[in-house]
């Protein structure tokens, strides 16, 4: 059991949900034929589609779908045979179309579950709410010119899986264990290399605190945590901050925060009032994604042995045999 946090005025329970962005292992981007190799010179892996040129159209990369479905199966999740790509509209210079193609109301993968490993051989199930496929953005580089920002579109359009958990975790340790297990599963399946340093796996944490037994508190979302260490530090800092605010008579406002790993603190990025209205709607350039059950079954049959199954079979093999 996760221990409760002690504040000045009593005990607090920490509630954490995670959104993990995992770059799908595929030779080409999600909707264009451009390469996805890491480390190329800026803007060398950009197709006309990735650059948002006029009149360009997305064509779905089947391999990205295959990897997402395999991942969903490995998470014991429901595979939605009918799913929809939607546009998430907002302006950002490294997002050339002016919208991100993602999945909103009907994701390709629905409810699933991950068993996380805790100290002393304890385990806990964390529910996965959904897994959907979406495009990555490019990269803005701010340190090469005093007044200008540079844009690198190599990553623009790369296929991501966004894996969203339920708010089932109760400590930074559990959150770390979740990401560790998820990363192991992704690596076993081969759908993501799990390399957080290169940014091919990134994590957003939704953090709130409440009195034990109360309704969920107001959450803050901490964006773009790129290591498990930072994830733990950010959650611990944020939990302490929220407890301080409430105990001093304040209220938590729903907002997006950034973790500054140099200072070891989170700080406000934008409040809910400034939050984008993404105006999601089905992307008219793409047909609905309709999969056959037979296709899903075939992928399931080909899945490699997963970490939990492997562990279980090792346990079986090492169990003392009664003679």
């Amino acid at each position: 059991m996760a221990e409760l946090l002690k504040g000045q005025t009593g005990e607090w329970e920490l509630v954490i949900g995670l959104e993990v962005h995992a770059q799908i292992v595929a030779k080409a981007k999600l909707f264009s034929g451009a390469s996805t190799e890491f480390g190329a010179e800026p803007n060398q892996q950009v197709s006309l589609v990735d650059a948002g040129m006029p009149g360009m159209l997305p064509v779905l990369n089947d391999e990205a779908v295959r990897q997402a479905v395999r991942t969903g199966l490995a998470l014991n999740a429901k595979i939605n045979l009918h799913s929809i790509f939607a546009r998430k509209n907002f302006f950002y210079p490294d997002m050339p179309q002016g919208y991100q193609i993602s999945q909103y109301e009907l994701p390709v993968v629905g409810e699933g579950e991950i068993e996380i490993d805790l100290p002393d051989d304890a385990v806990k199930n964390v529910r996965v709410e959904r897994l959907h496929i979406e495009q990555d953005a490019g990269k803005s580089i701010h340190d090469q010119h005093p007044a200008k920002s540079m844009i690198d579109l190599n990553r623009s359009g790369v296929a991501l899986m966004e894996i969203v958990s339920h708010p089932d975790m109760r400590s930074a340790e559990e959150a770390a264990a979740y990401v560790t297990k998820l990363r192991a599963i992704l690596r076993y399946v081969g759908s993501c290399d799990g390399n957080m340093q290169e940014g091919s796996m990134r994590c957003d944490a939704n953090v709130s605190v409440r009195r034990p037994g109360d309704e969920l508190g107001t959450r803050c979302e901490i964006k773009n945590l790129n290591s498990i260490r930072f994830l733990r530090q950010a959650i611990d800092f944020e939990a302490a901050r929220q407890i301080d605010v409430i105990e001093e008579g304040g209220t938590i406002t729903q907002e997006t925060r950034l973790y500054d790993s140099d200072k070891g603190e989170t700080r406000s990025m934008r409040s809910k009032e400034d939050a984008h209205d993404y105006r999601y709607f089905p992307d008219p350039d793409l047909l609905p994604l309709d999969l056959d059950q037979a296709y899903v079954d075939a992928l399931k049959a080909e899945l490699p042995e997963l970490p939990d199954a492997k562990k279980a079979s090792l346990r079986r093999r090492t169990r003392p045999v009664a003679l």
Binding site: P93, G98, R279
Partner: peptide, 9 residues
């Protein structure tokens, strides 16, 4: 949505 790409970038 289609005309969002005309952003001057």
């Amino acid at each position: 949505s289609n005309l969002a790409r005309y952003d001057g970038v």
